[in-house]
Design a protein around this nucleic acid. Structure first.
Lengths: 158, 158
DNA sequence: AAACATTGTTAGCCAAGGCTAAACTGTTTG
DNA sequence: CAAACAGTTTAGCCTTGGCTAACAATGTTT
């Protein structure tokens, strides 16, 4: 294990002042991110389907493809996965619906997303930018941070 | 295009109060995230290699594997890619080094990472949590938001 | 110097998430 | 009511980023 090189500090012109975290902690950081990536897309689909159902009354594959900027074939394949995961129900060539589990996921996803988005706006970020950032960030914000963001937003309502 | 269903608002019990963004904007949000995912891992590797070089004087595949919680084979494969991208130079069985481009990427990555991490701490997030969240968030924070985070952190130094 | 432990590489597998092209279904319309 | 069109699915391809197992090189210890 070369990971505790004793003469390291000698030439350590660290860019940040921070030292490397201990291996276990560091490893867990990356593992958490990898993990988030696995569920991320699923959550995005489910969240979008929920939004389409709420705002439009139906969720068609074509709408999803347009909004995600992805081919219909990709959506179709993904829907099969969502079906296997029992998050949506679908009859061929018909609109989609969320299962109980799917609705739950859509709600929590939507809630997280909104908290992050409103937080960014409260911070002073431009709306269009906030939307893009929120979309990327939402899956990587812990419950702890989320709670803090929510409190912050409430206190900075203009 | 079913994406402008006129009778939609009738049954639109939106979870959030927000309406759906226009298709083009929505599509761009997802596209931006997908794009970030492509460079994310690359940046993580380069950033970590930079950190190891700075703090330890060398960056070995085994260290990377340990810190990323990933097999050595995966690291080896990734290093080949980094080589092709001309971000690192490596001789077999020897420590890695960053090219000029690699160093630049490592620096900006590290800087982003630090800004996000310090921001989260300034917000009041617990250190361990802040580290995990920062790792996931850093690739999804725009320059605009980053600048705001930095300003916020400076003003909330305790 | 030989044996062993550590480190690095290669080969070959897998799943996920993209794509295009082609086939099929359902709806609208002449 | 048949034809045309819009929407959906399937087939088959590709790349990425994981993995294990087997092998190769290096370094350390006796």
């Amino acid at each position: 294990m070369t990971d505790s090189n004793p003469n390291a500090p000698l030439n350590a012109p660290s860019i940040s002042g921070d030292a490397l975290p201990p291996v276990e902690q560091h490893a867990q950081q990356y593992a958490t991110v990898r993990n988030a990536h696995e569920t991320e897309l699923i959550e995005d689909y489910v969240e979008l389907i929920g939004d389409l159902l709420a705002h439009r009354g139906e969720a068609r594959a074509a709408d999803i493809a347009n909004r995600m900027a992805v081919s219909q074939a990709t959506v179709s394949k993904m829907i099969r996965r969502l079906n296997e995961l029992e998050l949506v129900t679908s009859k061929p060539y018909r609109s989609l619906f969320l299962t109980e589990a799917g609705q739950k996921m859509a709600e929590t996803s939507r809630a997280r997303h909104d908290i992050v988005l409103h937080f960014l706006r409260a911070l002073g970020v431009n709306d269009a930018t906030a939307r893009i950032d929120a979309e990327g960030m939402e899956h990587h914000v812990s419950d702890e941070t989320l709670a803090i963001m929510q409190r912050f937003t409430e206190q900075h309502q203009q």
